[in-house]
Design a binder for these strands. Structure first.
Lengths: 200, 200, 200, 200
DNA sequence: GACTAAACGAGACGGTACGTCGAGTCTTTGT
DNA sequence: ACAAAGACTCGACGTACCGTCTCGTTTAGTC
């Protein structure tokens, strides 16, 4: 789980430091939303690491970001478990909104959406499958408690809950207001409502 | 409905022809998925229109695409109306999948997702709000027939139906298979299921 | 006779000035013998003209030097005509030595010797054929006066006179002393001595 | 007199093998006329010897070539001695032409002409002084037989004979045709023709 | 039908970034 | 302890596209 540069044979010392300094420059650029600062030239300038070194290790900006993304892969943050499915869903949805509105995501998402680099695409796919699978636990618990239908797979429910958020942020650029989230949770709750025969 | 080049004082003749030839080049590039061919230089080469002329009229690639996107705004295609909500939703979903999988969308979507150009963002927002509002008619009809709850706004139902498709195409790059669509429609149908008191 | 950029359509304007400033930088570098300063990057720095502009106009250092060389092509300097062939030859030889010992030649000759660029090779060939043809006049006059044999072509005589100078400067790096020149002239004089039957 | 790599402390072992493998790579590059293959990187690649090793032993490409040139210093090839000075001169001239036209010379000569490395310059100077001194024997014999004047030093005669060949190959890039050689020999013969008083 | 102003064609320029290559230095590793 | 391996800095290469500029040339619409 070392990222793309598997060949890292000399973990101690200069190489590791190079890696860190370049990553720092990338993070800085992402946080500031300065897409232009993600050019290799500019990253080299900011990190103090020479252009050719970056090329040698990562080949391209996208490889670099893929590598970084892997490091960012969501630590298994504890899920809300209030006993109330709606409340749990709302918390998760708000958390995702907060994440997507954060500068680093605002910058990164379009990059991921637009890339043709397989490494970056794969890293991103991994990120989301991991996030969704983890979050699905909420629905699974609700199913076990008889609070959610078993006719919808937990991971699909999560997809339906979160997809509209991504749509608004990435595509239609509509606001992700409080009211929108509430509405979204209501819809998910309806989708997950147990049928009459499941209530027993 | 003049597009971005409001300054167009001489609609007839050469100017119009210039506009068409450049648009044709843009469309061609989009269809071939050749992002590189969307550079002003390459468009100039392909269209036979001089670089400076393109700059004068559109200022940038994004302005150009915004202008084109406006022209592409969905003609009000007839909606399916089979009397069966599930079937109608499935048809719409499949149609959207087909559109998004088409080369021109595959190329354009990331551009839209990634742009910072307000004109392009606005043109895109207009495109989708128009598409969604139009499609919502299906749900509205179902509500009138008592086949769908009135507790979910038609436009929100459409959002929930289509958002996962965009998510998969743009972000997670999961397949948009037949099974996925079926599953999606099932979820939407559950969301729209009339409550017991609505059935009367 | 405008050098390589025959297309120069705007002689009075910026283009002409660009040309001059770059040439000045090249001349400066040649005179200082700083081969490294003949890199496009360094010439751009010194001339204040942008790298890409130089590439556009000359494609490479060698094209540039070829262009410059054409401009340097020997103005038809007056030839010595003392009535004494030996003395005339000596003067020409010394003049060539002086030219070759000048910093600009010292830098340029190896470039010409080493180039694979056809334009530079051609420009150089032109330079020398012109120089030799011009110088041959001395021998021609001597022939007319009966002071030199007609069995050696004037241009060959010049070649034999001057070639050892080039050999020493370029290849063997032996000194081109006064004594060497005298010796050289003696040899040429012997080569050109009229046969008994020509003396009449 | 082992060349530049004075550091060679272990003549029989690995060091000697390294030397040979690198030399082989240099020779190969010279013969193929691939100047680019004379870079340290490429030589390392071809020879299988590590870059740093080459740096340690020779410091630069030029040192390496100087070292090699010393090894190539002309074995004392037997001189023609037909009793006919003209014929002998012609044979020598043709042999030199053949040498210079050989790929290895074509590649090496410009390097020598252009170098600023004193070791390489010295090695080259040694090569030519040895070649010329050796060849001068032809003229010396002719003098002893009364077939050539004593007023021209043998080594100078050789210089006059061969210099035009170098001039054409290196500088003016004129052809070194059969006719040219004949003409050249004629001129040298005239230069060496004994005076009336020497004929006795 | 000639005139005028907008639009277009042409092409040079300065500028940023690209990705690559070779030179030469310095560090880590293995023996 | 030392040489091999290799990661690093540095700078040049040649190219692509950007956006700007100055000219000169159509051409559309008007008087």
């Amino acid at each position: 789980m070392e990222g793309v540069d598997q060949v890292r044979t000399r973990p101690g010392g200069r190489s590791a430091q190079v890696r860190e300094r370049v990553f720092a420059a990338v993070r800085e650029a992402l946080e500031q939303g300065e897409t232009a600062a993600l050019s290799i030239d500019e990253l080299a300038r900011r990190s103090g690491i020479h252009r050719t070194t970056i090329y040698r290790r990562w080949l391209s900006t996208e490889g670099l970001i893929a590598d970084l993304l892997i490091a960012l892969t969501p630590v298994e943050t504890p899920l809300p478990d209030t006993g109330d499915l709606r409340r749990d869903l709302a918390r998760v949805a708000r958390r995702v909104v907060a994440t997507l509105e954060a500068p680093i995501s605002k910058t990164m998402l379009p990059l991921i959406a637009g890339t043709t680099d397989p490494r970056l695409a794969e890293a991103a796919a991994g990120y989301w499958s991991s996030l969704f699978a983890h979050t699905a636990e909420i629905v699974r618990r609700a199913q076990e408690r008889g609070l959610a239908t078993r006719e919808v797979r937990p991971i699909d429910a999560v997809e339906s809950l979160l997809a509209p958020i991504y749509l608004r942020v990435l595509v239609t650029r509509q606001p992700t207001s409080r009211a929108f989230i509430d509405n979204l949770v209501t819809r998910s709750a309806r989708m997950l409502a147990p049928g009459p025969e499941e209530k027993a």
